[in-house]
Design a protein around this nucleic acid. Structure first.
Lengths: 231, 231
DNA sequence: TTCAAAACGAGAGCACCGCTCTCGTTCTTC
DNA sequence: GAAGAACGAGAGCGGTGCTCTCGTTTTGAA
């Protein structure tokens, strides 16, 4: 990646790349990932559709760039949510993270669908997206680690992990610290799944007419998860 | 809906409708919802693409029919999973339901994406899908109801629901019985979200390299949820 | 039994899509 | 200053969902 574009051409290229990405981002927000059209972006920017391909080799590449952007955006929102509370106010940080997550999802439904809904067309998210995608999980893991180091432990009885499970979740534990309590790790992963499960079910319409007040229900779930995590 | 098609034309119509749906279903399983093509279906069936529109007014209508079929199929799998254990073996029923759910999702990833992933193109799932979609939730709710009637209660401390939450989840409680314990209802909804969250995260690639053994992890989560539910 | 109306299949065609190729121009680098 | 890379525009290919028309077949009522 060229750090400082010096020639006029490189400058123009960076600028146009940005414009294309911006238009694509706007289109994503408006019509969703499936209806995103390279030709429409070209029309918006008053250029030939073929010219767009000088900057992005394919529609999928464009989508991948948007995916990374979305992950980063979400990661920022979640981190900001967690930073709203004091570092040792674990429950406050948890609530902030959880609200940051859902708040972003509600504000950017199409982006959420792109990141956490079913992967688009036939296409498997490439390696490039991994670091950006990890930000949310990292925020949660760090919180769990801090809780463990503060001497907390799950507020709900948690069964010991099986041998298979212990080996299975090793990467997660290694990511923060190998000393991380196994029960805490399992509870953390469960909380992670519960949050995304709730948001997906809500956003994709599966709670329709079953739960009436999504805000209230999410708040309940988040508080309960905080209890279960001993925060 | 004509119960018994008597004329030759009605018979042929029913047959062709079924063939189209079958081909569409096969295509869905092969290439996923986004790549499903009306023209390809027509080619497979050796008919003009325009003729397909005599049977389904649009691609979306076809997708909706497939959506209902998928929900029904999943409902059946989940009910079968729950029926594998004795009626008063609550934990066994729970494990069966949970395994039925994930088993179906793994066997039919594209169908799962269609039903519980992001809703396709621009399109909002119509009313017709509601009854079919409710089967899974119903199986879970009935289990929770049976547990409550058997005198069980959540195995993890559960906070009392707020006024807002109580009103919010009223439809869910009313669906089984108004007497259903509120803590149980909340725990049931949480378990529901946790299951789908886990499966979605796994299927859509978010656990990649974080959790190694998906089977073991899911089993752990399901067992823990059973404990939390007091099953 | 006849006959108008409805249902149907096929084909052409419209407007869109992602993507490629070519060609003339502009900028960069040696 | 010249060779070559990068670029923008345009035409074009094969694909899509969907519509319209037209000739045929089937239907149900007169």
């Amino acid at each position: 990646m060229p750090s400082a574009p010096r020639t006029a051409r490189a400058l123009a290229r960076a600028e146009l790349t940005r414009q294309i990405l911006d238009r694509a981002s706007a289109q994503l927000a408006e019509v969703g990932p499936a209806a995103l059209s390279v030709r429409q972006i070209a029309r918006d920017l008053e250029m030939a559709s073929s010219a767009v391909y000088r900057y992005f080799p394919s529609r999928d590449a464009l989508l991948t760039a948007l995916l990374i952007r979305a992950f980063d955006d979400l990661g920022e929102a979640v981190e900001a949510g967690g930073a709203g509370a004091d570092r040792d106010d674990l429950r406050g940080r948890w609530l902030g993270i959880a609200q940051g997550l859902r708040g972003w999802a509600l504000a950017h439904p199409h982006e959420y669908a792109l990141t956490y809904g079913s992967p688009v067309p036939g296409y498997a998210a490439p390696q490039d997206t991994v670091p950006a995608a990890a930000r949310v999980a990292t925020a949660l893991l760090v919180l769990v680690k801090d809780a463990h180091e503060a001497g907390r432990s799950p507020g709900a009885p948690t069964r010991p992990a099986s041998e298979a499970e212990l080996a299975s979740i090793a990467p997660v534990r290694a990511f923060v610290t190998d000393e991380l309590d196994e029960a805490y790790t399992v509870r953390g992963l469960m909380a992670w799944a519960t949050l995304f499960g709730n948001i997906s079910l809500e956003l994709f319409g599966h709670m329709y007419r079953g739960v009436l007040d999504y805000d209230a229900h999410y708040a309940t779930v988040v508080e309960q998860l905080a209890d279960d995590l001993g925060l």
